[in-house]
Amino acid sequence: MRIADKTVTRAVLERHGFTFKKSFGQNFLTDTNILQKIVDTADIDRHVNVIEIGPGIGALTEFLAENAAEVMAFEIDDRLIPILADTLGRFDNVTVVNQDILKTDLQMQIQNFKNPDLPIKVVANLPYYITTPILMHLIESKIPFSEFVVMMQREVADRISAEPNTKAYGSLSIAVQYYMIAKVAFIVPSTVFVPAPNVDSAILKMVRREQPLVQVQDEDYLFRVSKAAFVHRRKTLWNNLTSHFGKSEEIKEKLEKALELADIQPSIRGEALSIPDFGRLADSLKEMEL
């Protein structure tokens, strides 16, 4: 019997007197077919180390441990540590770290893998309330994760993988796709969780690009400009840029020159710009010392 089997999950929770904490966004997956599909999507084998975030009672960890070289699972909730020791005790290739993934020294932690030189993949059912900060923290870290296969709220997955000229496309799409190729692998209905969340989830697969999608003078500046372009989605790029940089005649003149240099019409909306467009725009604005 698998940990994710509903009767096993229920028995584990009762045995340990565990109650769900909303503040940790805990929803435990109870569908073994979906867990197998996650592992297949991530293409996990004995030549891969895995980082998992929020293992819960170990439902996904069990599948990962059976396939990966090693699994390092980060769990913030102290109450789950003895439960994980109980459910995963038979595995000698699983390490549970009782730390917040946003505060741990990940560079140091991965040196604890028996073979830290193996490719590292992130496979996780991410807490909804903190999905974006965790993802951006990991993507922007200096650790060369080869791939992410992560479950999140369907709406967030759609935003991350969105193309230009769609409602979902925005600064989050740009921030992730600058580094990663992102695709929704499959949808996970809310009914397969305990407790059931209010929305469906999606498995998002992200593969790191060999090089960022565009070469820019300043990455942080690129992301700042892209955020500014989406502050008021229904406004033109020009209106958003003047709201962000200012409306003095000097600034307007610089903005006009920057847009001309980047070959971008001021009357379009941010959602019409591709990431290479934003790259040219950011470099042009930087040249104008804005």
Score class of each variant (00 low, 15 high):
Leu84Asn: 08
Glu147Thr: 10
Glu75Trp: 06
Ala85Gly: 10
Asp117Gln: 14
Thr132Ser: 13
Glu52Asp: 04
Leu84Trp: 02
Asp92Gln: 03
Ile44Gln: 10
Met136Asp: 04
Ile76Arg: 13
Leu64Lys: 05
Ile76Glu: 09
Ile101Gln: 00
Ile76Leu: 14
Ile44Ala: 11
Thr61Glu: 01
Gly56Met: 06
Val150Trp: 00
Phe145His: 01
Gln153His: 02
Pro144Arg: 03
Val48Pro: 01
Phe113Thr: 10
Asn125Met: 12
Phe148Leu: 06
Val149Lys: 02
Ala68Leu: 09
Ala42Cys: 13
Val50Leu: 09
Pro116Thr: 14
Thr61Asp: 00
Glu140Phe: 02
Ile110Cys: 09
Gly56Val: 00
Glu62Ala: 07
Leu126Asp: 11
Leu138Ala: 04
Ile53Gln: 05
Leu80Ser: 10
Leu118Arg: 15
Glu140Lys: 11
Glu155Asn: 06
Ile110Asn: 06
Gln109Gly: 09
Met152Gln: 11
Asp78Glu: 12
Ile81Tyr: 01
Leu84His: 02
Leu126Cys: 15
Asp100Arg: 09
Gln107Glu: 12
Val97Thr: 00
Lys142Cys: 06
Glu140Tyr: 07
Asn67Phe: 00
Glu140Cys: 00
Ile139Ala: 11
Pro133His: 01
Asn67Glu: 05
Arg79Glu: 11
Tyr128Asp: 09
Thr132Asp: 05
Val149Met: 01
Ile76Pro: 10
Gln107Gly: 13
Pro144Asp: 03
Pro119Thr: 14
His47Gly: 11
Asn112Cys: 10
Leu126Trp: 10
Arg154Val: 10
Ile51Asp: 00
Pro116Ile: 14
Gln109Ala: 15
His47Tyr: 07
Ile57Phe: 00
Glu62Leu: 03
Asp100Thr: 04
Ile44Asp: 07
Glu70His: 08
Ile81Met: 13
Met108Val: 13
Asp100Ile: 09
Glu155Lys: 09
Leu118Lys: 14
Gln111Ile: 07
Gly54Pro: 01
Asn93Phe: 03
Glu62Met: 03
Ile101His: 00
Asp40Met: 12
Phe91Glu: 01
Leu64Thr: 08
Leu126Ala: 15
Thr132Arg: 10
Ile120Arg: 15
Asn98Leu: 07
Asp78Pro: 13
Gly89Trp: 03
Asn112Leu: 14
Ala42Lys: 13
Ile130Asp: 03
Ile139Leu: 04
Asn115Ala: 15
Met108Trp: 07
Val97Leu: 01
Gly56Arg: 01
Pro55Ala: 06
Glu62Asp: 02
Arg154Lys: 15
Met72Trp: 00
Ile134Cys: 03
Leu126Gly: 14
Lys114Tyr: 05
Thr61Lys: 03
Ala68Met: 09
Glu52Val: 10
Glu155Arg: 08
Val71Lys: 10
Arg79Lys: 14
Thr41Val: 15
Asp92Met: 04
Tyr128Arg: 12
Asn49Leu: 04
Ala85Ile: 07
Asp117Asn: 15
Ala68Thr: 07
Asn125Cys: 13
Gln99Gly: 08
Ile139Asp: 02
Ala59Ile: 05
Val123Trp: 10
Glu52Arg: 06
Asp45Ser: 13
Leu102Asn: 05
Tyr128Glu: 05
Leu80Trp: 07
Thr131Asn: 08
Ile134Tyr: 03
Ala69Arg: 13
Val71His: 04
Val97Pro: 01
Glu140Trp: 00
Pro116Gly: 12
Ser141Lys: 06
